[in-house]
Structure formats: structure tokens, C-alpha cells
Simulated assay, not measured.
Amino acid sequence: MQADRTKIARQFIEGLPHCNALGMSLSSIGEGEAEILMPYAEKLIGDPETGVIHGGAVSALMDTCAGAAVMSHPEAGLATATLDLRIDYMRAAKPGATVTAHAICYHMTRSVAFVRVSATDGTSDVPVAAATGAFTVERGKS
């Protein structure tokens, strides 16, 4: 059952148009954890003078990764949607660096999943951003 849940989550994430547009790729998923990579690209630049990636791209990466973690959780429902996502941006990602999001679904109720996400670029011990979120848990009819 867990293998099926992980396969469905992987297919869903890989099929999302915004993931493709932003160059995201799923690195790993399963048991309530997910990791998604977003390589640096000129189309993601938010500040042309510095080459820094726009915060919205980082936000989309973290939200998508969190949803993937929820979908792969052993107690997950059939679908999920973001209820709340609070992101703290700690520093700009280094221009040219791939940004990696790692999410953990750490608590699941009947109807809400809670997730922690970090985004890093491999150039510092300080994350690019950290987030906490709440997601719906949509279950099928019993």
C-alpha cells in the first residue's frame, strides 16, 4: 500500500505543469518525506542586478515539496491542498546554485497534516528558507 501511495505522489508531482515550468525534479519521496530539486535558471531570477532567484519560485518549491510529503505519508488521504504555509526567508540563494527543498510530514490528524520544510542551496549551513504548513487530508468515502 505504501509503495502505491508513493508511486501516486511521484506521478502527481512529476505531472504538475508548474513543476515542469520551474525545472523541479523529485529527488526522493516516501513515508511522509520528500525532497525536490530546483536548478538555477535565468527565468527564475527576481533581481537582474544580482541574479538572485525570486522568492516566489522558492515558495512554490517548498509548497510542492510539503504537499508531496503529505501525499506519501502512510496515513495520507487521496489528495491534499495547502491550508497554511508560513515561510521564513533567511538569505538569498547563491546565484547559480540548485535549491533543494526537504519536507517532513510530522503529524497527521483525520483531516489536517502538519509539515516542516527547509530549502538549502548547499553553500551555507544557514538555510535559504524554512517553513511550516498545514495541509488538508482528503479521504475517500468509507
Rank of each mutant, 00 (worst) to 15 (best):
Q2V: 01
D4K: 07
R5H: 01
K7G: 04
R10D: 13
R10E: 15
R10Y: 04
Q11Y: 01
Q11C: 04
I13C: 05
E14C: 09
P17M: 00
H18P: 04
C19L: 00
A21P: 00
L22I: 02
S25K: 13
S25L: 03
S27G: 09
G30Q: 06
E33R: 15
A34N: 00
I36S: 07
I36T: 06
L37M: 11
P39C: 08
E42V: 08
E42K: 12
K43D: 11
I45P: 05
D47R: 10
G51H: 10
G56A: 05
G56H: 03
A57G: 10
A57F: 09
S59H: 13
A60N: 01
A60I: 03
G67Y: 03
G67F: 04
A69K: 02
S72C: 03
G77C: 08
G77Q: 05
G77R: 04
G77D: 04
T80S: 14
I87A: 10
D88C: 02
Y89A: 10
M90C: 08
A92Q: 10
A93Y: 08
A93R: 03
P95L: 13
G96M: 12
G96Y: 11
H102M: 06
H102K: 15
C105G: 08
M108N: 01
T109A: 06
R110H: 14
R110S: 14
R110V: 04
S111Q: 13
V112I: 15
A113Q: 05
A113P: 06
A113K: 06
F114W: 02
V117S: 13
V117H: 11
A119V: 02
G122D: 06
G122T: 09
P127Q: 14
P127E: 13
V128R: 07
A129H: 09
A130P: 00
A130H: 12
T132S: 14
G133R: 09
A134C: 06
F135T: 01
F135Y: 15
F135I: 02
F135N: 02
V137Y: 02
V137S: 07
